[in-house]
Design a protein around this nucleic acid. Sequence first.
RNA 1: GCGCCCGUAGCUCAGCUGGAUAGAGCAACGGACUUCUAAUCCGUAGGCCAGAGGUUCGAAUCCUCUCGGGUGCGCCA
Length: 554
Amino acid sequence: MIIAATNKAIEDNVLSIEDIPDFYIEVPQDKDHGDFAANIAMILAKQAKMSPRKIGECIAERIYTNNSVVEKVEVAGPGFINFYLVSTWANNAIYSILESGKNYGKLDIYNNKKVQVEFVSANPTGPMHMGNARGAALGDALASVLKMAGYNVTKEFYINDAGNQIENFGLSLEARYLELLGQKGEIPEGGYHGEDVIEHMKKLIDHEGERFLHMDSPSRRSYFIDYALKKNIQRMQDDLKSFGVDFDIWYSEQTLHDTGKVNEVIQILTDKGYTYEKDGALWFKASDFGAVKDEVLIRQNGLPTYFASDIAYHKNKFDRGFEWVIDIWGADHHGHIGRMKGALKALGYDPDKLTIIIMQLVRLYRNGEIARMSKRTGRAVTLVDIVEEVGKDAARFFFNLRGADTHLDFDLDLAIKQSDDNPVYYVQYAHARISSILRQALEQGIKLPDVKKLTKEDMTKYANLLVEEADLDLIKRLADYPGEIKISADNLAPYRITVYSQELASAFHSFYNKCRVLTDDEDLTIARLFLVMAVQQVLKNSLAILGITAPDRM
RNA sequence: GCGCCCGUAGCUCAGCUGGAUAGAGCAACGGACUUCUAAUCCGUAGGCCAGAGGUUCGAAUCCUCUCGGGUGCGCCA
């Protein structure tokens, strides 16, 4: 339509341009600016050597408006061409929501592309901390958003059950074991001082007593590690479940070593001539592939580094058929990005198929002081603490309230104190209020027609009754939802859904205070009931993405 | 020193690929419950978008520099 009009303007010799460039049609933020707006005039300004405003007028007056959808066209501001649609247009959204139910917002784009989201991947040497909690909330919501947008998503947890920290874990367990039995034990440097390590050994002694005192140290440690890792991993699974997060795959780092995949990948790099020996270690020429410096693959002591196994892991991800891999890492890992992508490139994989989301760390305050998050101090606040003290819903909402790259200050005392007026309740309250209305409607014996059997005429009849500004605001918000899913997926920004849910709840609360749903007017009551049912559905859908419950009563 | 993140209302932050008068929440102040849940709503006030240049018809948004805050730079993971 716009292009036709522009062409006509060119024919009429009022516009002198070569060809028509790409331009956007968007929904303006301000509803006074119409239902849709096109920015073509501004883009043409330079080429046509005319003011955008004038171009807009030239084009706008050549647009045919005698079709049924567009009510009016006008030029405004610097040269936007605004389209106003006839008011019943958006109302169809209500019926489409009620028909699609929980699938409303599901998009067919992206062709079911296979994408993996790897997140949390906490060290299995202790309880999960605040950063893991943020990662869990972010990753799970992101996976849900991508699923809604039409990707085939697999959620994966990488278990770092190999390497140095496992050695230290074993030494720490052993030290505690000896201490508990009255002998001298020493936690190594970089070891684990947490209470949980002692707990493990207490339980072990309860069940198996002192028999390990007589065992040689390496086999003893290996037994302890096995024992404690199994418990820790089980615990992480339980804790994440209580946080509403389920993984499809738990992938063990150790299996990469056991199956020779780590050695294999080092061999491939060596065969390609991308490695060299120096100081008794084997180095990867990462700097040839865009990294800041070369990196060690095999240490002087003959053991592969974490980097080496991570290369094998990422190669394996692509070999498993994922077309796109997303990793969520803490900001402390950002130095790892360049070399990881470099390694993929060296192996002949497209590094652009690996997206790494860097999540800024959570800074935790308690009693007005910064609390260290390291599990090694043994005094860290854990994911479980958060769930218990603030609640799953509030915590997940809070973590997804902001983008991943904002530094998050989490004041624990404040969070607990404020959990009463946490914004999550604002959204949940809207949902509960609607449930309450529906209960009342049921009690009053109001008969609601079957949505699926409504004729076009019926829909139009009901739609025409929703003419209040509050009605229309609400409808427009509802119609925005699929677009929000797309933006959210394209920007890997699930926090947009959180913001959206607040906006929708706000529009609803506002509506609620202005308009009654249950009135003496039977048709209007039905029209409004359909409206609030649609609102409830979309609230439920967006809260589902965030992993937050939608209560019927509060 | 090098890399990355951030700097927008008193506070916490939005602002999607540059677009119309820079927006929310909290805090402050003033109003609204005999009526579907007041965990709500309505209103008032609050801004040199850190600073300086540049690109553009048009900049909070893009580029350069400066300043301030955070964080990372192990043969740890």
